[in-house]
Simulated scan of single mutants.
Amino acid sequence: MSIQLGQIAPDFTQESSRGEISFHKWLGDSWGILFSHPKDYTPVCTTELAQAARLMPEWEKRNVKVIGLSVDSGANHVGWEKDIEETQGQSLNFPVLADEDRTVTDLYGMMHPECDPNITVRTVFIIDPAKKVRLMMMYPPSAGRNFQEILRVVDSLQTSDKYTVATPVDWKPGEPAIIPPSISNEKAKTMFPQGWKELKPYLRIVELPGK
């Protein structure tokens, strides 16, 4: 199955390290990050899961629920969690799907046979409270993810939704945003009474409230 931005994230019911999860119900009105791992007891994933757990205060501040996935069993997950805590100094505080039958893997297109027919690639899906897929990233098995970038994208998406803006390259919270070309100057006067800087008719820079 090929997933596209803007479509509803496929729902599923699957076992996890914290019991059975019905995905849409579990998400509720939160944002969600679903990220997959090639398999349990892999070195790069061990570091990634620990980092995602360390960032829990940041996820909660943004109303984000995090859920991992591996194509191994729940029993394997239990042992792996112990290794993660021992080697990384961080216990897991979010569920990891035990997708042994590859139900979720197939729904989300996480298996790339040309890369390796036996393991999932490292995928990341950011899903909004309307259950729409807002971002997809795919990493090869050898490259660890940058969770600061994932946090940054969540901030960008939430800012864009709140103020109807776009964010420029390397944007971080508190920095100026961009008024989309689809918004006329007349409409922008109502939406952005603070005014903006026009570099080109299509490139209008605006400071957002709360900077």
Results as ranks from 00 to 15, higher is better:
D155T: 09
Q4P: 05
S73C: 03
Q7V: 14
R134E: 04
T103R: 13
V121L: 15
V96W: 01
N146Q: 05
G6F: 03
P129Y: 08
D72W: 08
H24Y: 08
I150W: 01
R134K: 12
D116P: 03
R62Y: 07
M137V: 11
D128T: 10
W171H: 07
P117I: 09
R204F: 07
A75H: 12
K131L: 11
C115V: 15
A143G: 09
T105W: 01
K197L: 14
V154D: 03
T190P: 08
E207I: 05
K39V: 02
A188Q: 08
V78K: 15
W26A: 06
K39P: 01
E114S: 14
I67L: 05
W80G: 01
K65W: 01
P95E: 02
V121K: 10
A53P: 00
Q88R: 13
Q90V: 11
E149S: 01
Q7C: 09
K211M: 14
G89R: 08
D170C: 09
I3A: 08
P57F: 01
L157D: 01
R145L: 04
E86A: 15
S16K: 02
E186W: 10
F192W: 09
S156V: 04
A166V: 09
Q90T: 13
G174N: 09
K172C: 07
F147A: 03
Y139D: 06
V78G: 04
D155C: 02
Q158K: 04
G32R: 06
A53E: 00
G68W: 00
E186G: 12
L55N: 09
D161T: 13
K39L: 13
G79N: 11
I205L: 12
S30L: 04
Q51K: 10
P57Y: 00
K211L: 10
M136P: 06
D161L: 14
D99T: 04
L199N: 11
I67T: 00
S156P: 00
L151F: 06
V121A: 13
V206G: 08
E81N: 14
A52F: 12
V66K: 00
Q90E: 14
N76S: 15
V71L: 12
K197N: 12
L135Q: 10
F125N: 00
G174Q: 07
V64Y: 04
C115M: 15
K162C: 07
T120N: 12
D106F: 11
W171K: 00
Q4K: 14
Y163W: 14
R152D: 07
S142C: 13
H24Q: 10
Y108E: 03
